[in-house]
């Protein structure tokens, strides 16, 4: 029997060592420990920067406060919102005296007249003045208004998607290596798409509000611009990756590029593109709900207004409508996606 170590030492280092001497895998190495340490330091520094330490402390306090033992700033603030948020405000009311040509005999649908007492402090006489005013109350007036605003957001999402498709198809073709007329056009198309993609909607919306004023136009353009960058890149990549056999077959029969594109590429790329457009549409509706915060139309404008006025019961109505809409959207699009294209 030979000693393995003597075998390996008797040979030159280039020659194969006995398997008992092969270098084994080591899970923990000094290099790994060093890297982990550096990562830990970087994370700790970043967490301090972003106040995650305070978040941890206050969240801990809030959890303890849930048991009633202590007070928590976080819970107090949440409580202030929740106290006012419910019940939801569905009704709208307007002072009768402010309505021109008010006709008491033919009220709008569902509406009623209500008398309300208001007490106002008069600083001159240092007394409370009690006054009874008549209000025209519509029990679902506010809900209807919110729904109308929500519908506006949905429409913004729709038109944003339509414009986005219209922009992304030509740019997508020009940005596909195999169908672009030349390198310059390719670079140009890809650059435009990249720029569109890189600009966040809220920032684009700010500029369009500046240009077109408050309202849905700014929101639609912002959505179209950002998502055309996303859709266009996707379309370009899909065209580049389309199966080459059918294209080669049509080219060999003498068909020009556009014809090949129409016949051998579009039909193949279509299902993936439609699925993507559907996703973008869904996403655009969600985004359209917040674009109003910068004045770009839709339900976000109403939300921002009510939030700034601390009208939390109105805010909760808006949130309820948004929540129901988004859930419905999710269910509907799941159904559609389930069908094979």
């Amino acid at each position: 029997m030979s000693n393995p170590s003597s075998i390996s030492s008797s040979k030159s280092p280039n020659e194969a060592r006995h398997h008992s001497q092969w270098a084994l895998h080591r899970a923990i190495t000094p290099k790994l420990v060093g890297i982990l340490l550096l990562v830990f330091i970087a994370l700790a520094w970043s967490a301090k920067n972003t106040e995650l330490d305070r978040a941890a402390i206050e969240t801990g306090q809030a959890i303890v406060a849930l048991t009633g033992a202590t007070d928590s700033k976080v819970l107090d603030s949440a409580g202030r919102f929740l106290d006012d948020a419910f019940p939801f405000t569905f009704e709208s009311s307007i002072e009768v005296s402010r309505i021109d040509n008010f006709d008491r005999d033919s009220l709008p649908l569902f509406s009623r007249i209500e008398s309300r007492e208001t007490r106002e402090y008069d600083a001159f006489t240092e007394t409370y003045l009690t006054e009874t005013k008549e209000y025209l109350v519509n029990p679902i007036g506010y809900l209807l208004k919110v729904l109308a605003k929500m519908w506006e957001s949905i429409e913004m999402g729709f038109w944003g998607t339509v414009l986005s498709v219209a922009i992304s198809i030509p740019l997508g073709v020009l940005g596909a290596k195999n169908y672009t007329p030349n390198k310059l056009v390719y670079t140009g198309a890809r650059t435009i798409l990249g720029f569109h993609r890189a600009m966040p909607e809220l920032i684009i919306a700010l500029f369009f509000v500046l240009m077109y004023g408050f309202g849905p136009i700014a929101g639609i353009f912002a959505l179209a611009m950002h998502t055309s960058g996303v859709l266009g890149k996707f379309f370009s990549d899909e065209i580049e990756n389309a199966p080459e056999g059918p294209q080669a077959a049509l080219k060999a029969s003498g068909a020009g590029s556009l014809k090949v594109l129409r016949f051998a590429v579009f039909p193949q790329v279509f299902p993936a593109y439609v699925a993507y457009v559907q996703y973008i549409f869904e996403r655009n509706i969600r985004t359209a709900t917040i674009l109003g915060m910068v004045g770009a139309g839709g339900i976000g404008m109403e939300l921002k207004g009510r939030w700034d006025l601390f009208d939390y019961s109105h805010v909760s109505t808006i949130l309820l409508v948004i929540f129901i809409t988004v859930m419905t959207l999710e269910v509907v699009s799941q159904r559609i996606r389930g069908r094979s294209l």
């Binding site: 049509l250 029969s253 003498g254 068909a255 020009g256 556009l258 014809k259 090949v260 129409r262 016949f263 051998a264």
Partner: peptide, 12 residues
């Protein structure tokens, strides 16, 4: 699709 080359683009 075997005869695309002979057709005007709009038809295709």
């Amino acid at each position: 699709s075997g005869k695309l080359y002979a057709l005007p683009l709009w038809r295709v």
